[in-house]
Design a protein around this nucleic acid. Structure first.
Length: 495
RNA sequence: GGCCCGGUGGUCAAGCGGUUAAGACUCCGCCCUUUCACGGCGGCAACACGGGUUCGAGUCCCGUCCGGGUCACCA
């Protein structure tokens, strides 16, 4: 049966040309780990930096590893991160479909084309299990490689199971170019005749990639450096078809420590985990962008980048060759910076649910509490334990009233607290300025340092040594009645 | 084991033949201060090792060591 060449011509005619086109091509096998997110980000940045097109393609050729809901996580993550795609399964596009299992026929046709051209062959050998004998490194030549094409075709027509393998030259070398690593040359004899079409008729990852990347007009192939060693086989495939080779962008992995990649297995956080841990999406993206990439020139010292700024600044030459260890402490620092940079109202909004986890009393002003928190939390999840005392005065020891830095002793605390209660109970207006000025005035009038008075007031009001905000803010938030009640309780302790 | 890639402070990193080897995180000290933070100032700390090339090498070459990847009908 002869191949229908018009099919290939039609496919070829659909390929968009002239613009940068990149693709994020996850396999729906799990969740978005940090390395994945970074790959998506870099891929998107290359497209946007060059006013190009960003495509989402789902690589689901492994039937045995489908995970339910995995594609939804991908869509959701990209959307939350604002890594919008121009083409994809959900939005369509000129080279649809964008799900590999729906392109099944295409791969078979191209594989047969390759067989016809003499760059691939049918192989009828039994499934080879990975041979454990590590002593032997010379792979025996596949007998099917030299089978007569007529005979092979006859066996295929007879329904015998087969795979299609790439026929790689035994002689010579192959040199491919990578935007990060430069030119890399390998001996062809070190390359094996990899499977292109599996026994189940579906393509292998490597083959599907080449076909789809070409047919979708992809100009920059961004992927992990673990694919570096299969890149020469890709080049050979492109050559066999007579196609232009895209620009390879191989990125070194994001590591959990010096020896291991980030992985679900080790319990390393995914994007969603990080969010649940109180990290902000823009902070995560900003940090992840800098893990393995750094800006050049003028911008070399800048660390804080919005997505828009990244689009401007992103250059392939800034991508690092060596792996980068994910440092949660530095991410935390970025997160803190992002929190502090938020408008107060915006922060109050995102902080509210966390504040309400421990502050149930509806009379307490959330915005006011949030204002105390903004410079004092690095993650949103830090919030609940910091503000629990607003709802309920914790048990505390009378010894807390003594503090040498504030020059507060149990005696001074008793004297000052007593005076403070009386004064606060009769303040004409309950606002922070009034509370502040009268407290400061009181201390001065009694010949004490301000801090010597503020310390016991705050301890009595909050019941803990470390609090967000000072005595004045805490008293104001609690309200006069509750403040007076708590201060009197403190006085009792001191008696 | 073969092949490929990498190696600047604990971490992220700038550096592109001549620099006192940036900057950030962490840690420490000081200042500010109403506790804690924030903010400001200062400090500790690095070119894996050995040979070349060169007037001069973190920067170029070779070797060693260390680390990673790959050698699937997984991606």
């Amino acid at each position: 049966m002869a191949l229908d060449m018009t099919y290939f011509e039609e496919m070829e005619a659909k390929i968009p040309k002239g613009k940068v086109r990149t693709r994020f091509a996850p396999s729906p096998t799990g969740y978005m780990h940090v390395g994945n997110l970074r790959t998506a980000l870099y891929t998107w940045l290359i497209a946007r930096h060059n006013q190009g097109t960003f495509i989402l393609r789902i690589e689901d050729t492994d039937q045995t590893r489908q995970v339910e809901g995995a594609t939804e996580v991908i869509y959701r993550t990209l959307a939350e991160c604002k890594l919008d795609h121009d083409e994809g399964p959900d939005v369509g596009g000129p080279v649809a479909p964008y799900i590999q299992t729906q392109r099944r026929d295409t791969y078979g046709k191209y594989a047969r084309l390759l067989v016809e051209k003499g760059h691939a062959y049918y192989c009828f050998c039994e499934k080879t299990e990975s041979e454990e004998d590590s002593g032997e490194f010379d792979r025996p030549d596949d007998p099917c490689r030299s089978l007569d094409p007529q005979e092979a075709q006859a066996r295929v027509d007879a329904g015998e199971p087969y795979v299609i393998r790439q026929k790689i030259p035994h002689e010579g070398t192959t040199t491919f170019h990578d935007a990060i690593f430069g030119d890399i040359t390998v001996e062809n004899k070190d390359l094996d005749d990899q499977v292109l079409i599996k026994r189940d008729g579906l393509p292998t990852y490597n083959f599907a990639n080449v076909i789809d990347d070409h047919l979708m007009g992809i100009t920059h192939v961004v992927r992990g450096s673990e694919y570096l060693s299969s890149a020469p086989k890709y080049d050979l495939l492109y050559q066999a078809f007579g196609w232009d080779v895209p620009t390879y962008v191989h990125c070194s992995p994001v590591m959990r420590d010096a020896h291991n990649k980030m992985s679900k297995r080790h319990g390393d956080p995914s994007y969603e985990d990080l969010k649940a841990q109180g990290y902000l999406t823009p902070a995560i993206l900003n940090y992840v962008a800098l893990l393995g990439w750094s800006p050049k020139g003028e911008l070399a010292e800048q660390e804080i980048f919005s997505l828009e700024e990244l689009v401007d600044a992103f250059e392939l030459s800034g991508i690092s060759k060596s792996p980068a260890i994910f440092d949660i402490e530095k991410l935390t620092h970025f997160n803190a910076l992002y929190i502090r940079a938020m408008a107060p109202e915006e922060f109050a909004q995102v902080a509210e649910p966390y504040i309400r986890q421990s502050v149930k009393n509806p009379k307490l002003n959330v915005a006011e509490i949030a204002a105390l928190l903004q410079a004092r939390c690095e993650k949103l999840t830090d919030i609940p334990e910091k503000v629990d005392f607003f709802d309920a005065l914790p048990e505390y020891d009378v010894g807390l009233f003594a503090n040498k830095k504030s020059k507060s002793t149990l005696d001074s605390a008793k004297t000052l607290l007593s005076a403070a209660v009386g004064m606060l109970a009769n303040l004409p207006t309950w606002n922070t300025d009034m509370i502040h000025d009268s407290l400061v005035g009181l201390a001065e009038g009694m010949g004490f340092k301000t801090s010597t008075l503020m310390w016991p007031v705050r301890i009595a009001a909050a019941g803990k040594a470390v609090t967000p905000g000072g005595a004045v803010e805490i008293c104001h938030i609690l309200g006069r009645e509750e403040t007076v009640r708590r201060l009197n309780l403190g006085l009792e302790k001191l008696s």
